[in-house]
Amino acid sequence: MRSESIDNRLRLHQGAAAKGDTGQPGQVPGNRGEAAMAHEGMIYIHPAPVRVWHWINAFGFVLLILTGFQIRYAELLHLMPLRDAISLHNYVGFAVIADYFLWLVYYIGSGRIRIYIPDLRQVVTMALKQAVYYGYGYFIGRPNPHKMTPDDKFNAMQQQAYLVIMLLLLPAQMVTGVLLWKIKGYSEYINLLGGIKVVDTIHVLLFFFFTAFLMIHCYLATLGHTPLAHFKAMFTGYEEEH
């Protein structure tokens, strides 16, 4: 996938050179075919396995959050019977766990996991720049300090957030979820962690965190050059270069 994306960028630059435009990617010559024409001026950012993982994960998260609220607040919410909510929550939970391993195998197998690892020499400066952009620069129309490329997909804030989420918080949510699924069967492990209430507290706090994260994530996704640009890219794999 990595070579595919690099090839694509090369192709775009070749197209730009053919047009005699050295600053911006240009039109792909006519003999390149329809597909290439469709992706003119675009960059292949999200390979297919990432998109499949992302949307299964997203759909799973929405279902887990809805059923999670139903399970915790059965006296307030009546979206579905509690028994169905628990069953659905369990099934979807395992689907999300399987999906996590798709992510893990793909990113570690392809070596692309390094896009999640921040450069320690620059991470503080870059994260501050990014925060200033989101809190001020964006409003006055300044360009995003981070330029998205397939090998440098995340800005410094994203890198830190996603690294903690994917390697710590999501696994913690999965482990506590599995323990709560079979309380009696895993009672020894639950006791080792300090009891069912400790396990439940971790699961519930992360549940609230992920719900808030989803709101912010969806909102930040609208900060592309058009509100739907990043959403489209997550379906097609291609981001427009800006």
Binding site: K197, D200, A212
Partner: peptide
């Protein structure tokens, strides 16, 4: 103190609800 008994929804900790509300 009653760490080994938890009923989904039934004996949930209200403190968690307040923290959750703050996070959301």
């Amino acid at each position: 103190y009653v760490n080994h008994f938890y009923l989904l929804g039934g004996t949930r900790m209200k403190l968690m609800d307040r923290i959750g509300l703050l996070i959301l």
